[in-house]
Design a protein around this nucleic acid. Structure first.
Lengths: 156, 156
DNA sequence: GGATTTTTGTTTACAAGGAAACAATCTCTC
DNA sequence: GAGAGATTGTTTCCTTGTAAACAAAAATCC
């Protein structure tokens, strides 16, 4: 039997190497690994941070809108928000205009947490993408933005 | 309160739109959504297919090597392989040379399953990446390959 | 204006995946 | 060749996320 199969760096993946879905999964795991390695989590996980960040950008946003933009399912969003509320980071308010909905706002405490974490998050971001040049990294980001339909959001 | 926060397409994500980790997560979910929408799963989930495919490419590969290349943790790999074995798709053999290890091979049944599924998988792949041109898609794939360290594997 | 349908969030039950502790085997050093 | 340490896979427990059924409140349709 071929010895190469026992050496991880020699494993053949064939056509799979050209599969977008496969590459995206690998890339995401890669990014997460980066993330959890160099800076020890300062208490705020990536998912939590992104939720808080988007609430900060859109005060009073509804759970459904938040979930759609972040691709978080409603069932999961309920748990996430409840945890953030328990941690006194967000407050939920039911608007009179639509008593089914929940509007989310950061508590002062939450605003403080985002402020503190955002430097670490975005600062770290710039140092990610190890094997890529800065130009390639920018290109990759632009392509991903287009792919996920987030292209023109930045400049708005 | 600003009404825009209630319209999902108007949600602001600010600097998050430039975060590689965030974009990769979104992109992967996007790809998965595509995948499960247009062709109903023909019994083989993406994860299962990739495992079978790589075993097909590397007969006798060890669980550890497979896991490293596919970024699947050992604990999870054990469960995955057991399920595939129960489904009579792969066979496990403990080599005399190293009795800790497990060498994986496809059963005839497994080889058949891969053959049948691979057309669907790779055929589907080419139609993915909706908002991207073919050139952009190729560029994205090349960048991802470099990012995850799979750049020169293809041609080897 | 009352019945039907949709939207929004919650609950419950489950699947996917990871961390840590463990057991077995191999390797390395003396 | 007898221990010390590393590797490989498994088990158990836990976290993260999903699917489906549900309840309450709009919106829609005669």
């Amino acid at each position: 039997m071929d010895v190469s199969a026992r050496r991880p760096d020699k494993v053949q993946v064939g056509e799979l190497a050209g599969s977008l879905g496969f590459l995206l999964r690998l890339a995401q795991l890669h990014a997460f690994e980066d993330f959890f390695s160099d800076h020890g989590p300062r208490g705020l996980k990536p998912g939590e941070f992104s939720v808080l960040w988007v609430i900060a950008c859109n005060p009073g946003i509804r759970q459904s809108a938040l979930g759609q933009r972040l691709m978080i399912k409603r069932a999961h969003m309920t748990k996430l928000v409840r945890a953030l509320e328990d941690a006194n980071l967000v407050s939920r308010e039911i608007p009179d205009a639509d008593r089914r909905a929940v509007e989310l706002t950061l508590t002062p405490n939450g605003r403080q947490a985002v402020d503190k974490a955002s430097d670490a998050f975005f600062g770290y971001e710039e140092t990610t993408g190890a094997p890529l040049s800065l130009k390639e990294r920018a290109q990759l980001i632009a392509l991903l933005q287009k792919y996920v339909g987030l292209a023109e959001e930045t400049g708005r």
